[in-house]
Design a protein around this nucleic acid. Structure first.
Lengths: 198, 198
DNA sequence: GTCTATATTGCGATAGAC
DNA sequence: GTCTATCGCAATATAGAC
């Protein structure tokens, strides 16, 4: 029951920071949920701020699952599909992640500038290069704007998870997620593919 | 210079709450930016919380521009197009709105439950009914899930504005916005339309 | 490693002068 | 209508006992 306390504090922080944000949560609340006291947050993590930065880092690093080694060589359609299904899996395993991402998106903190940006930018680049290849190979329409299309795709995939807290939180999860992601893939691919008759 | 002070406080609050959120901003900061002192916030608005609620109400009410009287009778494609171009105009006129919406989306406050939800729900319903009519009229593919398609469309349109703070804030505005919205309309409509060959 | 107690700071709200 | 001064509270961080 020694190192275990640190882990409990971390998980309590993920839950509470995720649900309510950094400012609404006190170190006492985090400690209470972890079944200990607030002094241990300074002891283990240095400060409330440092704990938050660690939480962000842990959460956002989950996004790297998408960046498999061979991703740059896959069929462009497969890259887009992979983005959707991987994010479905990531958000399922890390239900608080979308909230952290959303907060950092609208009010980038210093934490973001240091390392989140790099991670997001790389994901962004991989999607861009997939679209570029798709156009070159004649799979996608040549008149689409690549930059805009990437944001379009990211929006389709991520907005669903953003809007979930506003829906009833009781609703069953996986089936809806899968249906939504499948439809996103169908609609987006149909929308950007070079149509067979032209 | 009397009623003017109240207005200055309100605009200061919109800017600061929008940029940094409710908790990160003190009434002293709002007063300072308005060139007055914090006691006037209680005097004019009752409390910091009440001021925030007023700001939210003012900001979110801008969304009603979309709900023109004849919207339910327009061509379904036109309704979707109108949603995109109206939101472009709204976000241009209210650059902080997307931040308030985003925060309320991931952490719905009591303010939201009272009246935001109703407004958002109505917009949601209008889009749903447009898609339903589109399918009935044979314009859209019959196999799309309406609920999912609405979120898809809202995501495409709104995510762009959400991701703007992370891009350089210097970038020129209007041209990119228009290009993005046009492409969103093209891709989504192509994606959900019943293709001429089947 | 974990606790209690506390020093210190900054907040929102208000009383009261003008 | 606007200001200064201040009360009361809750927060983080830390000192020190065990």
């Amino acid at each position: 029951m020694e190192q275990d306390t640190k882990e409990k504090l971390l998980h309590s922080a993920i839950h509470l920071f995720g649900e309510y944000g950094f400012d609404k949560i006190s170190i006492r609340q985090i400690a209470e949920r972890a079944g200990t006291n607030s002094a241990l947050i300074s002891y283990y993590f240095g400060s409330k701020q440092k704990l938050y930065e660690l939480v962000i880092e842990k959460q956002v690093s989950a996004l790297e699952q998408f960046l498999t080694p061979q991703i740059q060589e896959l069929d462009p359609r497969e890259v887009l599909r992979l983005y959707a299904v991987t994010l479905q899996k990531i958000h399922q395993e890390n239900p608080m992640l979308i909230r952290f991402l959303c907060r950092e998106l609208i009010a980038p903190s210093n934490v973001l500038d240091t390392f989140i940006k790099k991670r997001l930018q790389f994901v962004f680049l991989v999607l861009k290069s997939a679209l570029k290849r798709g156009i070159q190979q004649g799979i996608f329409r040549p008149d689409i704007n690549i930059q805009a299309a990437v944001i379009l795709w990211a929006g389709m995939v991520n907005f669903y998870y953003m809007s979930r807290p506003i829906h009833t939180r009781i609703k069953g999860t996986n089936e809806n997620d899968t249906l939504y992601m499948q439809q996103a893939i169908t609609v987006f691919l149909t929308g950007i593919e070079r149509s067979p008759h032209s």
